[in-house]
Design a protein around this nucleic acid. Structure first.
Lengths: 321, 321
DNA sequence: ATAATAGTGTCTGTCAGACAATATCGT
DNA sequence: ACGATATTGTCTGACAGACACTATTAT
C-alpha cells in the first residue's frame, strides 16, 4: 500500500520522518520514564475424586488449584500462582504456555485470559502488573505434572470458597453498596503442609448506571501477593461461563458418567442441580460410549464423552441439515 | 501478625532477610531485564440520533466511538483510541479515569476492563502492552466533551461492523476451524475527515475441549495500531453483556421511551427484537415518568428512567419483602 | 432385602416467539 | 382519513422446576 509508504515519509512537528523518529525514540525517550514490570500468573484448576469410606457411595468431586512455594523474598515460604515475567519478544499468550510448560510440564491445555491486576503496591519489590490466565485440565493430565515432586515445590490445594456474610451499607453518595465477605480455604494435598486461607470483601457499588464490583483482600494467610484475589476472580469466571460455554469439559476426563458431570457442575456452581433436567439438557452435547459398567454396589452408569461438534449435529437434527 | 514479622526475618538462599533482599533487588536486579511499556486504551462508546427526513419517522440510533488523531509517529495522521502510559504509582483503573479526564474531559463514567493486548509487534516503537477498557456514556455527557473542538483532534466515528463471509476449514489437527470475516467501517461525524475501515478475520479453533477465538487484522485503513481489533473486542463484549447485565443504560439518557431503548438494543445486537416481549421483559427495570409527549405525527410515548434498584423491588413484589 | 445410584415419566407454570388488534397522535 | 408509532392481548410450544417412579447393581 502506498498509504503506508506515504506515512513513513510524513514529517511530524519536529520535522522527522518515521525512521528518524524511531531512531530518536529508541535512544532518547524509551528509557526516560520508569516502567512497570509485567508478569503472567496462571490459575491451573483441576477436579479430583475424594474416595468415600462407604463402598456404595460415589467418590466426591473436589476442586484443586496448583500453587508453587516461594523460595525467595517477598512472601518467602508462602504459596503463589505459577507464573513469571513476560519476555520482551514474546506474546502474552505464548508467555503463559511457556511458563506452564516450564513450571508444570503441561502442554496442550485450555487457557484464557482472566484479568489484569496492577495495584501499585501489589508487589513490594517494584511496580508489577500481572496479566492473569485461567487454565483448566482434567486429572488425566495431572500425570504429566512435575507437581507432586517435592523437590519442585509445586502442590495442589483443594479449594473451598464460602460466603460468610452479606450486608447492605449506604455509601457517600447515599446509594446502597452491597458488601459480601468470602472465606477462601486452600487445603494442601499432603498434610506435610499447612492449610492456607484468606478473607475477601466484595463490594458492589452502583457506578454510573450499573454495578461495579471491587474485590479486596482483608486477610491472607500463606497466600502470596494478591493471589487470593486472583483465585476468587477465576472461580467466578468459571461459574459465569459454565452456563453459556462448554469449558467444564476441560475439567473432565475423556470418559465420564452423567452423574460425574453433574457433580462437577454442582461443585463449581456451589448449588444442587436437578438430575432429570440436567441430563435432558446436557445429553445433546455428549456421545454415548459403550456400557462401561463399574463394580459398585448400585446400578452401573453409561459412560459419555464430550462431542465438540454437538452444535452442528444438533442444528442438523432440528432444522434438517 | 507475627507471621509477617517472622517472614521478614526469614533468610533466603543467599542469607538475606526481606529488607536486604529488597535493597539489593532495587539496585541490582530491577533494571537487569528490559521491560515492556504499559498503556491503557479506552473505547468510549455513545449512541446518537440520526434524524430522518420524514417528519413522522423516529430518529434512527447510531453507535459512535471516540478516536483521537495521531499527531506524531508512528501511524501519524491515523486515528487511535484515547489512552496513554500508566504512571508508576497509579492503579490501572485510575490511569483510565485520569486519561479520560485529560483527553476528553469526561468524569463519572462507567468503565470496565476489556482485555490486555500484548503482541510484540503491535507498536513499532517498542514492546507496548495495552490494557484496554470499555467506557459507555450517554449523549447527555457528550456536551462536556472537548471532542468536536477541532484543535483537540478528537472526533466521534459512527461504527458499522458487518459479517461478510463465514466458512469452515480443516486445520492441521484435522479439526474444523470456523473463519469469519468482518468489515469494520468508521464514519467521521464531520465530512472534513475521511472514513476509516478495517477487515478482520476471526478464527474459532477447537482448543482442548472448547473453542478459542483469535482475532486478526487483515487490513486497516486509517486506524492506528491494532485498535481495530480492540474495537471489535469491545463490540462483542457489549453484545454479550447486553443479555445478562444492565450496561445498556449507561448508553441511554436519563429519560427515554421504550422504543428508543429497543432501538439501542437492536443496534447493539445487530438484529430485530420483538417489541411486545421486549417491553414485558424490560419494564420491570424501569420507572415510568410522566406522560412526556412529543409533537410527532403519531401516538406519543411514555418516558421511562432506569431504576437501578429494580432487582430489590422486584424480589420484594414477587416474594413479599 | 437393602442401600445406593441410574435413568425415565409427567405435571405444572412460566415465558419466548409470533402475530393480531387497538390506541393516539400530527397533518 | 392516513401514516406512523405505542401499547396490549392472546395463542402456541418449549422448557425449567419439582417430584415420583422404575431399574440395576454388590453386599
Amino acid at each position: 500500500m502506498d498509504r503506508v509508504a506515504e506515512q513513513k515519509e510524513t514529517l511530524n512537528d519536529k520535522g522527522q520522518n518515521l525512521e528518524t523518529f524511531l531512531r530518536e525514540y529508541k535512544t532518547k525517550e524509551l528509557n526516560q520514564y520508569e516502567k512497570p514490570s509485567v508478569t503472567v500468573d496462571t490459575l491451573v484448576f483441576t477436579v479430583r475424586n475424594k474416595m468415600a469410606k462407604n463402598y456404595r457411595k460415589l467418590p466426591k468431586k473436589e476442586l484443586y488449584v496448583l500453587l508453587v512455594k516461594r523460595g525467595n523474598h517477598p512472601y518467602i515460604g508462602d504459596w503463589a500462582l505459577p507464573g513469571g515475567f513476560v519476555n520482551l519478544g514474546e506474546n502474552i499468550d505464548e508467555a503463559v504456555l511457556r511458563e506452564l510448560k516450564e513450571e508444570t510440564n503441561l502442554e496442550q491445555v485450555y487457557t484464557e485470559q482472566l484479568y489484569t491486576f496492577g495495584d501499585p503496591d501489589r508487589d513490594p519489590r517494584t511496580r508489577i502488573i500481572s496479566v492473569s490466565y485461567l487454565a483448566l485440565i482434567s486429572h488425566e493430565h495431572e500425570g504429566l505434572l512435575k507437581a507432586g515432586d517435592d523437590a519442585f515445590d509445586a502442590m495442589w490445594f483443594k479449594v473451598d470458597s464460602n460466603l460468610i456474610t452479606q450486608r447492605a451499607r449506604e455509601n457517600e453518595d447515599g446509594r446502597q453498596d452491597i458488601l459480601q465477605e468470602y472465606h477462601l480455604k486452600l487445603t494442601p494435598e499432603r498434610e506435610s503442609e499447612k492449610p492456607l486461607s484468606a478473607r475477601l470483601c466484595i463490594k458492589n457499588t452502583p457506578k454510573g448506571k450499573s454495578m461495579s464490583r471491587e474485590v479486596k483482600i482483608i486477610e491472607s494467610e500463606g497466600i502470596a501477593f494478591d493471589h487470593a484475589k486472583i483465585i476468587t476472580y477465576g472461580l467466578e469466571r468459571i461459574k459465569n461461563k459454565l452456563e453459556y460455554t462448554d469449558i467444564i469439559f476441560n475439567l473432565m476426563p475423556s470418559s465420564f458418567t452423567l452423574s460425574e458431570l453433574q457433580q462437577v457442575h454442582e461443585l463449581l456452581l456451589g448449588e444442587k442441580v436437578y438430575a432429570a433436567q440436567f441430563r435432558r439438557k446436557i445429553e445433546q452435547k455428549l456421545t454415548k460410549l459403550g456400557d462401561l459398567t463399574e463394580g459398585k454396589g448400585h446400578r452401573p452408569a453409561q459412560h459419555y464423552s464430550y462431542n465438540p461438534l454437538w452444535k452442528l449435529a444438533f442444528e442438523k437434527e432440528v432444522y434438517g441439515l
